[in-house]
Design a protein around this nucleic acid. Structure first.
Length: 174
DNA sequence: AGCAAGATCGGT
DNA sequence: CCGATCTTGCTG
């Protein structure tokens, strides 16, 4: 069953762990593909110096200031699209970067596999017919937290926040 | 208007 | 470790 608005309109540090093991559904050419979410990173507010919101509202990050449940996509290093889910309420810039899906490790690799690009900017996960999140039957999921990747520029304390969430994988689940 | 840097990846 | 590749947002 598809996750609704209320799931995403919570603090990013609540939503991120709840995404562990959830199903990412992608529809293209009438083919439905379902992936297990295995790794995400949380970016929380303008005060988070690792976040794109650290400069306030700009052309690129404006969707982060919208209500939760929308998609934030951007290009990095001129080559890789990054897939994010907006969380929290309006004017509360938060986002969750999807770093890993069952069988696909790496935020740049998964968008290539799922064929996700700029056209998904602002897509609404609660009504879209080509991407959404579903609950999983599995309720016995455990995860660990580590520091976020590639954000040394943020400085302390932000670069040390354990805001990367990784599912404890049980091979038979995938 | 120009430029440095980037929430990455794959090959040496 | 290094290059690819190009948009963004800051600076002047």
């Amino acid at each position: 069953m598809r996750l609704t608005r209320s799931f995403f309109e919570r603090d990013v540090l609540q939503v991120a762990p709840d995404l562990m093991g959830k199903k990412l559904v992608r529809v293209r050419n009438n083919i439905i593909a379902v992936y297990t979410i295995t790794e995400v990173e949380a970016y929380r507010g303008s005060e988070d110096k690792a976040s794109h919101a650290r400069f306030g509202k700009t052309y690129r990050n404006s969707i982060m200031f919208a209500r939760g449940g929308l998609v934030y996509v951007y290009l990095i290093y001129g080559m890789y699209w990054m897939l994010n889910f907006v969380t929290g309420g309006e004017n509360q810039p938060q986002a969750i970067l999807v770093r890993g899906l069952g069988g696909i490790e790496g935020p740049g690799k998964l968008t290539r596999t799922l064929d996700i690009d700029k056209s998904f900017y602002g897509e609404d996960l609660t009504v879209s017919d080509r991407i959404w999140i579903e609950n999983s039957e599995d309720i016995n999921l455990s995860f660990i937290q580590k520091v976020r990747y590639g954000i040394d520029y943020a400085g302390e304390p932000w670069k040390s926040m354990p805001w990367r969430f990784i599912l404890n994988q049980r091979p038979e689940t995938f």
